[in-house]
Design a protein around this nucleic acid. Structure first.
Lengths: 341, 341
DNA sequence: TATCATTCGGAGAGCGCTCTCCCACAGAGC
DNA sequence: GCTCTGTGGGAGAGCGCTCTCCGAATGATA
């Protein structure tokens, strides 16, 4: 079923049918009507390939999950990346936002040099109009390569280093402030934060800590002890042991992610502290573990689906108006109150 | 950069370049070499749209996540579907399997009548060569529509009702047998199973129960008490209360999914039973909660990534040889031993 | 009525590729 | 030397669509 068929049935030319289908010029109402009837009658659907061949628009964007796989990877790296619900939430948000625009998300994985250049090639020769990038690794070279390529792209979370690339992020500092306010409103004054080891090259994590400190300061709590963890349950456990050793009167803990918050609760329990009666704990991410942990975690939630949707919107703007340089959006996190604080 | 350009640089015709690129006929070594050099030199990448316009192959498949959204859905349904790590694992497996074949997965969501017909249209006019379907709902009409359409399709898990459609599944009954064997090898004899309410129209769940019973019987345990749950933590909790009321000497529980296993442990604890000292509990799915629960769950794991990869392989065979009718593959589940049994 | 502007449909080129023909040429067999 | 076969390259049509250009018809204006 081609344009030609519709044209024949409607008794008009191919051009006219095309105009009706794409509604890009005035067509006499009577003609338009008979074309639409013909379209309906024979069940015509435009051929994407043919269309994109001439318009040079693919009507597709690539959703890239990027992260460096270890040399000896057996696939478990990929598995881990994808089994994080975070990924699915992003995908869901993107799919929902793109659907009404009739743009299709193509899933790609950029875990090796080869894979990365495949993504780049895919974009370069127009198989996709732009890229939505979710990086799991801080030193990911892909954002830089995307900038160099010069095709529309939006990344999830502000990239480290300065790179003229569009992004969508959550207000991490605001999230930290939210946590501080909440803890203090619960009467907690001896606060500790489980931060992250080494150079805080993941900007989000640093922002959370800074926001937390800032929030505490605004409420009159000048000092917040900090101990770094490695983002795992064990890391959170160890960090809190340290915190407890330094300040035994600790009564409020903010962990930079939920896994460490769970570890924090473990350590607290072992030290004879009850959560939340003796110590309140706030996590970050509202990951799947948050609702399931004991007690369920009070945590800061990033509006991931909304962020993903916003990424899609920004990208499509970039696609439509390439003269536009870079854009960004920062969405507000919210506090999900459960039982740990 | 088109074929034409390569042809000019290499001093041959377009047809020859095409032959080299697609390696579909003998080309004199010298000519082939100069063409390859030209391709390299100008960085030629074939245009997918143009190619698929003539070959009528899209080089893409659609990965459909299907499930009925409630009438008044605000998006939370989609969010829930996608945030299940299961979905990500499938996506990861598909991406990995498809990549070497240079076929791209396009993500689609079929949660409404409209969305479903979009998927169907996408397939029908060749924007995708086939469909990989993950249904979250038993009465999903999409598999049937896919069969009717007659385009290549593979679904995850054997569909309920009989439908001539290809599928990949895990040996659910084998998984149940594995659980029974394990429990009995731990000395458990008074077994209970937390099954599912109502008509077992999700074949997988029924198979698990049957497999469990069969495994128990083969080991000499003739009777297994059963109590249905609703696949949630609460459901598991309630079901075990019932089980305990009926047979207080219960010492082994098999739950059809991990959520219910967690609920089972809750109920057992409340009744003063220790897990795994007094009662052993085995779950199913190895979901993210399994490793995190207390105690960590011994559970039956479906090889989701492998199953997804197998789906991709079957689909590509179907695409290549459309005369083939339907195919299936059933992969073996494994028991992941943790602490609950 | 003649001229001009405006509206709207049609003709046709061409997007980049594949693939079917066709033809040139080399070597074999007589 | 001639035909016959096989090998390998070129010409060109055409996939389904968009879009520019053109021209016909209509209505407004002088």
């Amino acid at each position: 079923m081609t344009l030609e068929d519709v044209a024949r049935v409607a008794g008009v030319s191919r051009a006219t049918v095309s105009r009706v289908v794409n509604q890009q010029r005035r067509v006499a109402p009577a003609v338009r009507k008979s074309v639409m009837a013909a379209v309906e009658e024979i069940g015509y659907v435009p051929n994407r390939a043919a269309r994109s061949l001439v318009t040079r628009k693919a009507g597709a964007v690539v959703v890239v999950v990027s992260g460096l796989a270890p040399e000896d990877d057996d696939g478990s790296h990929v598995a881990r990346m994808f089994s994080d619900p975070f990924f699915g939430r992003v995908a869901g948000g993107v799919v929902r936002a793109l659907r009404p625009l009739d743009v299709h998300p193509v899933l790609m994985l950029a875990d090796t040099v080869r894979a990365r250049s495949q993504v780049l090639a895919f974009l370069e020769h127009g198989s996709a109009d732009g890229a939505l990038l979710v990086s799991t690794h801080v030193d990911d070279p892909l954002p830089g390569q995307l900038v160099e390529l010069g095709r529309p792209a939006v990344v999830f979370a502000r990239p480290s280093g300065d790179l003229p690339i569009s992004f969508v992020d959550a207000g991490n500092a605001d999230g930290g402030r939210l946590a501080a306010k909440h803890l203090i409103s619960r009467g907690r004054r001896n606060l500790g934060v489980v931060s992250v080891h080494g150079p805080l090259n993941m900007p989000a994590l640093g922002d959370r800590v800074h926001g937390f400190r800032d929030g505490a300061a605004r409420e009159g709590v000048a000092y917040v002890a900090a101990s770094p963890g490695d983002l795992s349950v064990e890391g959170g456990d160890a960090a809190v042991q340290q915190l407890l050793a330094d300040s035994p009167d600790l009564d409020g803990v903010f962990a930079c992610n939920d896994l460490m918050a769970v570890g924090a609760i473990q350590a607290l329990r072992r030290a004879g502290r009850r959560v939340p009666q003796d110590v309140s704990v706030v996590g970050f991410d509202d990951s799947s573990i948050a609702a399931l942990s004991d007690p369920p975690l009070t945590t800061v939630r990033q509006p991931i689906e909304e962020m993903a949707g916003e990424m899609a919107h920004l990208l499509m703007q970039l696609v439509d108006e390439p003269e536009r340089r870079v854009m960004s959006a920062v969405l507000d996190p919210t506090l999900v109150e459960r039982d740990s604080a």
